Amino acid sequence: GREWTEQETLLLLEALEMYKDDWNKVSEHVGSRTQDECILHFLR
């Protein structure tokens, strides 16, 4: 997939603090990424 922007990464980190590993909520918060993309990015 395409590179994550700084904004997307910030949203991901913010969402992780709020929702922990509720990836459905996390991906909704990021908006432009799927659950799978969020998980894969997080694991890097």
Rank of each mutant, 00 (worst) to 15 (best):
L13G: 12
L43T: 15
L40V: 12
M18A: 13
K20P: 12
M18C: 07
G1N: 14
R2I: 15
L40W: 15
T5I: 07
H41G: 04
L10N: 06
F42Y: 15
G31D: 06
W23M: 05
S27W: 02
H29Y: 10
C38P: 01
G31N: 06
W23C: 03
E14N: 07
D22G: 04
H29F: 07
T9E: 10
G31V: 10
V26W: 03
L16T: 15
W4R: 09
C38T: 04
L40M: 12
E28I: 07
Q7T: 12
S27N: 06
Q35H: 11
F42K: 15
T34R: 13
A15E: 01
E14P: 00
W4E: 11
E6M: 12
D22V: 03
K20W: 01
W4I: 14
S27T: 13
K25N: 06
Q35C: 12
V26Y: 02
L40F: 09
D36W: 05
I39A: 13
L13F: 09
T9S: 10
C38Q: 03
Q35F: 10
F42I: 06
M18Q: 12
K20E: 09
A15Y: 01
I39D: 10
S32I: 08
E28Q: 07
E17N: 09
K20Y: 04
W23Q: 02
V26T: 11
H41P: 02
R33Q: 00
S27F: 03
V30L: 08
E37G: 01
S32N: 11
S32G: 13
L12W: 05
T5K: 11
E28T: 09
G1L: 09
T34W: 04
G31I: 07
T5C: 08
W23D: 04
T5G: 01
T34N: 12
H29E: 02
E3N: 13
L10A: 10
T9I: 14
G31H: 03
W4C: 03
V30N: 01
F42T: 10
L12T: 02
V30S: 01
D22K: 14
R2A: 14
T5A: 04
L16M: 14
D22L: 03
R2H: 09
E8M: 03
L11N: 05
G1W: 05
R2Q: 05
I39Y: 13
K20F: 06
H41Y: 13
E8C: 02
S27E: 13
L10P: 05
I39F: 10
S32Q: 11
Q7R: 14
T5Q: 08
H29R: 07
E6P: 06
I39H: 15
T5W: 01
L11K: 11
L12K: 03
T34F: 01
D21W: 02
C38I: 04
E37H: 02
D22Q: 08
R2Y: 10
L40Q: 14
F42R: 15
K25M: 14
L13A: 14
E14S: 05
T34P: 06
D36C: 08
Y19R: 02
D21S: 09
L43H: 15
D21E: 14
I39L: 13
S27K: 13
E8G: 00
D22R: 06
E37K: 03
S27M: 06
I39G: 10
L10G: 14
G1K: 12
E17Q: 10
K25G: 10
E28V: 05
Y19T: 05
D22P: 00
S32L: 06
I39C: 13
N24I: 08
L11E: 05
T9Q: 15
E14Y: 03
